[in-house]
């Protein structure tokens, strides 16, 4: 039992390392140029954002549209701190500060709004994210509507890659633990969950706060990679862009989120050459996928090494 789980963990670690080496090699050979690297980093940041949002929407069943607000918190924490302290240490300090602020903000927003559900919660979280944006728009330290420029670049692609692995591990492991079962129970039936001793407020808040803090990490990486941020980067359309990734991949499937983030990232890059037609083709692609696969590309399917190893072992036994 435990041995099987350790093998699965080893497989995941191997995949992460192989992925890293592979991308490194392709960069070295020159297959991945600055253009493709930019695409990979954007996909990575979107994966961090969307897995966190999928935890909130797909696993705890809270329809939140305020994810861009938490991203803004992380981005501005990094932008401001890096300008005062342009070192690697400063970068990591800024990520931690961003997470801390996002946690506090998520608790303040979460306690009153998580009493709501469905459309009402979506509107309330959207409003909360707008408040964050408007506050940033009117503060001196954030340089108001003009935003921050010349943020030193510490978030190179290896840094983003490592953070994608870290945040995904945190979120997936959280979802497959006591906490994950509690939040999924609340999603399926809140009254029944309460009747079996689960405190819904506590667990919903836990999922919301964890999702918000990974969004802050994504914001930090975004700020330090793009090097320029403005309040308009974190509007409602950004929250919806993340929602699209979650819905398209399959609500409740982390594998789907990865898949959708990659598909949309590549699609977006490939369509660059189509000029203004790009958004039309992109929209048509979304509609087609939603019509033929309403539960998202992967539905609720979750890739699992433990299962693959099981099947592999069974085949071996059959052969023997």
């Amino acid at each position: 039992m435990t041995k099987k789980k350790l093998q699965a963990i080893a497989c995941w670690l191997a995949v992460m390392i192989v992925g890293f080496v592979l991308i490194n090699a392709l960069v070295y050979v020159g297959v991945i140029d600055a253009f493709i690297e930019n695409m990979l980093v954007t996909i990575g940041i979107n994966i961090i954002l969307a897995t966190g949002l999928n935890l909130i929407i797909g696993f705890s069943g809270q329809f939140s549209l305020g994810h861009a607000g938490f991203m803004a918190v992380g981005a501005y924490a990094t932008g401001i701190i890096l300008q005062a302290m342009p070192t690697t240490v400063g970068f990591f300090v800024s990520i931690v500060v961003g997470i801390a602020i996002a946690i506090v903000v998520a608790i303040i927003i979460g306690i009153p709004t998580l009493r709501l559900s469905g459309d009402y919660l979506a509107i309330a979280t959207m409003g909360a994210a707008e408040i964050i944006r408007v506050v940033i728009n009117n503060m001196k330290v954030t340089n108001g509507a003009a935003g921050l420029f010349n943020i030193p670049q510490f978030a190179t692609w290896p840094v983003v890659y490592i953070f994608v692995c870290l945040t995904t591990a945190v979120i997936v492991n959280f979802a497959h633990s006591r906490a994950g079962r509690a939040i999924q129970a609340i999603r399926d039936d809140e009254i029944a969950a309460e009747a079996v001793g689960i405190n819904p407020t506590k667990w919903k808040l836990a999922a919301f706060v964890l999702g918000a803090s990974t969004a802050a990490v994504a914001g930090s990486l975004h700020a330090s990679y793009i090097q320029t941020i403005a309040p308009t980067d974190f509007g409602i359309m950004n929250s919806i862009a993340m929602l699209i990734i979650v819905v398209l991949g399959g609500v409740g499937s982390m594998t789907g989120t990865f898949f959708a983030a990659v598909v949309l990232g590549v699609l977006d890059t490939v369509l660059q050459s189509f000029g203004t037609l790009r958004m039309v083709i992109y929209a048509v692609a979304l509609i087609v996928i939603m019509v033929f696969k309403p539960t998202g590309l992967l539905g609720r399917y979750e890739f699992s090494f433990a299962r693959v190893l099981d099947r592999f072992r069974k085949k071996k036994e059959d052969a023997a």
């Binding site: 492991n173 006591r178 906490a179 079962r181 999924q184 129970a185 999603r187 079996v196 689960i198």
Partner: peptide
Amino acid sequence: FHQLSVRENLQAAMTHRYKEGFVSSI
């Protein structure tokens, strides 16, 4: 909890009976 397996249904009901720290579970 209709989207969960029978086992997960029972384990969700045990949430208050055992503890898993955040750090040790992630």
